[in-house]
Computed example of a mutant assay.
Amino acid sequence: MKVVLFGASGYLGRAADEVLRARGARVVRVSRTAPRDNGWVRHDLMRDGTDELVSLLGSIVPDAVVNCTGLLDGTTAELVAANVTPTAALLDAIQVAAPSARLVALGSAAEYGPVPHGSAVAENAAPNPTSCYGITKLASTLLVRDAVVAGRLDGVVLRVFNPIGADLPYGTVLGRAAEAIRTALRKGGDITLGPLGAYRDFVDVADVAGAIADAAFAPALPEPVLNVGSGRAVAVRDVVAMLAEVAGFRGEVRESDPVHSRSSAVTWIAADTTRVSRALGWSPHQDLTTSVQAVWQNV
């Protein structure tokens, strides 16, 4: 199995690389900031031309292409360039250079927008994103889904909920909390975050990587979009409290910072994982406590 992994130097990409290799795949790691080492290729899906991408894929003839690139925050133009343009480029290039390759793309729970409190959301729910991030991720998903349904592509979008674990980036609420706690432990004092009353579905990054590998290796994909989450909604406040306990932080956690616009309208979300379990045999293995411990140990 030959896999071209875009975004291999990023948070999800590093985890996917580890699992894919552990399962025996030959992984060509691609990043716009790739080191000049064997097994790495420099390519920027946002800025490099289609001809270069066709040449790259044609030289490898992969069995699967995994795209772990993307941007959480930025201007409208930046989010479109990072979350939509790469998908469009891959769809065009794969059809020319590697038409039998499977595309595994990563979507986001932000595509759903607000959902009924207490109910797990399934893939057939009408998407209603409330942020530019969610809108651009949905646009990417629809491009892939349309190509799959039309028979132009073998592919799937994994709608990832809230990934946490080792090397969690600062742009997430737990990433910000971990950094704030580390600073407070060093300098003293309390920490200040935004409101923490929302409920989120946290899934370990290692489990997400497992789903990526499952999708790459699966003999067939009966569904073009699959949720990847724990299936359980937890109050963010409770998870931050778990993080503080793991860190040994005894100060106060204030919630007076501004609301983060990317997810402020969504007060509850949990994944219905029925389809991904049926399609890939996938289910999460890491418990939340272990994931939170990994967040702290790798800040």
Rank of each mutant, 00 (worst) to 15 (best):
289 T>Q: 09
67 N>W: 08
138 L>G: 00
77 A>E: 15
199 Y>V: 11
233 A>K: 02
187 K>R: 15
231 G>A: 11
61 V>L: 09
139 A>C: 15
276 V>S: 11
182 R>I: 02
289 T>I: 07
35 P>M: 10
246 V>W: 06
6 F>M: 03
177 A>G: 11
60 I>M: 06
248 G>Y: 05
157 V>F: 07
81 A>Y: 02
140 S>D: 11
296 W>K: 09
248 G>F: 04
239 V>C: 06
293 Q>L: 11
162 N>M: 11
247 A>H: 04
196 L>D: 08
97 A>L: 10
7 G>V: 15
154 D>P: 00
191 I>W: 02
147 A>R: 10
128 N>H: 12
5 L>E: 03
246 V>Y: 01
278 R>I: 04
229 G>C: 09
88 A>V: 12
43 H>E: 08
132 C>N: 14
29 R>M: 09
175 G>W: 00
54 V>D: 07
234 V>Y: 02
67 N>A: 05
90 L>Q: 11
26 R>P: 01
48 D>M: 09
194 G>H: 03
91 L>G: 06
14 R>T: 15
215 A>T: 13
284 P>S: 13
9 S>A: 14
281 G>V: 05
153 L>Y: 14
4 V>D: 03
159 R>K: 14
116 P>Y: 05
249 F>M: 11
57 L>H: 04
254 R>I: 10
175 G>Q: 10
231 G>P: 03
134 G>L: 12
104 V>W: 04
94 I>M: 01
71 L>S: 05
182 R>C: 11
213 A>Q: 03
173 V>P: 03
233 A>V: 08
53 L>E: 04
59 S>I: 09
39 G>N: 12
245 E>Q: 09
225 V>N: 03
22 A>N: 03
89 A>F: 13
142 L>H: 12
296 W>L: 10
275 R>M: 12
17 D>K: 04
112 Y>D: 06
135 I>V: 15
174 L>I: 13
83 N>P: 06
9 S>E: 08
107 G>K: 14
115 V>P: 00
40 W>H: 07
164 I>M: 13
5 L>H: 04
97 A>M: 10
236 V>G: 07
235 A>N: 04
197 G>I: 08
63 D>E: 12
5 L>V: 10
64 A>R: 01
279 A>G: 09
155 G>D: 04
241 A>F: 00
115 V>F: 01
246 V>D: 09
68 C>Q: 07
178 A>W: 00
178 A>D: 10
192 T>N: 03
113 G>F: 06
107 G>N: 13
254 R>K: 15
296 W>P: 13
142 L>I: 12
109 A>H: 07
37 D>K: 10
13 G>R: 06
281 G>W: 05
19 V>A: 04
74 G>N: 12
224 P>W: 09
266 V>F: 01
184 A>M: 04
127 P>V: 15
94 I>G: 01
183 T>I: 07
171 G>R: 10
129 P>L: 14
8 A>N: 09
245 E>H: 11
4 V>T: 14
252 E>K: 14
175 G>F: 02
83 N>T: 13
27 V>E: 01
253 V>H: 02
280 L>I: 13
150 A>S: 15
295 V>R: 01
97 A>T: 13
60 I>F: 06
291 S>R: 02
50 T>N: 11
133 Y>P: 05
51 D>N: 14
66 V>L: 01
93 A>V: 12
250 R>E: 13
107 G>T: 14
61 V>I: 11
94 I>R: 03
28 V>T: 13
